[in-house]
Every structure is written in C-alpha cells, then in structure tokens.
Amino acid sequence: MKDFLSLNNQLCFAIYETAGEFNKLYTSVLQPFGLTYPQYLVLLALWEKDEVSMKELGTRLGLGTGTLTPMITRMQENGWVRKERSKEDERKVFIYLEEKAHRDKGPITKRIAEEIQLCNISLTEYDELMKRLNELDQKLKDRSKSAGA
C-alpha cells in the first residue's frame, strides 16, 4: 500500500463511510413506518425471539439501559412493543412485540430487501461481506480482550 496514512487507505474510514450510507438507506426506508434504525434493530431482535428481558435485549444489541430504556418507551408509545415487570422478580422488565410489529414485519422487511437489491449486491457477495465483517468484528473483540488482560 502506497500511503497507509492517507484517509482513503484507512479501513476505519471505509467502514465509517459505508455505515453512513447504510444509515441513509435504512432511514429513508424506515421513516414511512415511523421507525428509527436502532428501533428497527430492536424489532429484528424481537422477531427472532419475543418476550425477552430488557437486560437480554440490551446485551443482544450491545446497548446500555440508558440508551435502550427511552427507545423502548418511545416504541411502546407508538404501539410496537410493550413492557411488563416480572411477577417473580420486579427488578426484571420483559419486552413483548405488539400486534403492529407482527403486522408490519412483512412490509418492512420487503422494503428493506428491495432497497438492498437496488444496491446490486448478489447473495454470494452479501454472504461474503457478512463473513468478512463478522471475522473483523471478532478480531477486534479478541484484541480488546487481550489488551485488557
């Protein structure tokens, strides 16, 4: 590589730029549904597994309670989810999908798929990108673990 320190040769900048483009894409798709991108991630996690504790959801999404709690409150106000305290342990709060989330799952995922297809990313390329990004993520996490040890 000619000039490693140039901005355009920085992997972190390429990821930052790409993430920004994805955010624009998802924002435009989700706006008609009244959702933000982080709220969509909450729905994705709950579509995989409904009725989870706030703590479990936060761990799954990598979000702290300071970020997640107000987001879930807004989603509850807008009819996407509901919160219920555990009857066994009042410290635990469980999150459940509401009918609106089940009803709109198809239209939301259809619109997302249509927009991704417009990016001309083949399934093979998509799978390869996911594999490589997951590998990179794991390497960064492994580095953090070894640096903290």
Rank of each mutant, 00 (worst) to 15 (best):
S144A: 14
L43A: 07
F13N: 13
Q31M: 05
A147L: 14
D89L: 01
I108E: 03
M75L: 07
K131M: 10
W47G: 01
T69I: 03
L41I: 00
K24V: 05
R143F: 15
K92C: 03
Y96V: 00
S53H: 08
A101H: 10
L123M: 14
M130A: 08
K87V: 03
L140V: 07
L123N: 15
S6C: 08
E88K: 09
D50V: 02
L136T: 12
G34R: 03
D50G: 11
T73H: 09
G66V: 00
R74M: 09
I112V: 15
L44V: 12
G64I: 04
L133K: 10
N120Q: 11
K131T: 09
L61K: 07
L44G: 00
L7N: 00
M1S: 10
T27I: 02
Y40N: 08
W80Y: 14
I108N: 04
L46R: 03
D142E: 14
E128R: 11
D50Q: 11
Y40R: 07
I72R: 01
P70N: 02
N78Y: 11
K145F: 13
T27V: 04
I95M: 06
L11W: 14
Q31N: 08
S53A: 01
D89Y: 06
K87S: 08
I121P: 05
T67S: 09
K24P: 00
S122A: 06
D142L: 13
A101V: 11
R91V: 02
N120H: 14
I116P: 04
A147Q: 14
D142F: 07
E77C: 02
T67V: 06
R91E: 03
E77N: 13
L41F: 07
L140T: 04
K105D: 01
C12M: 01
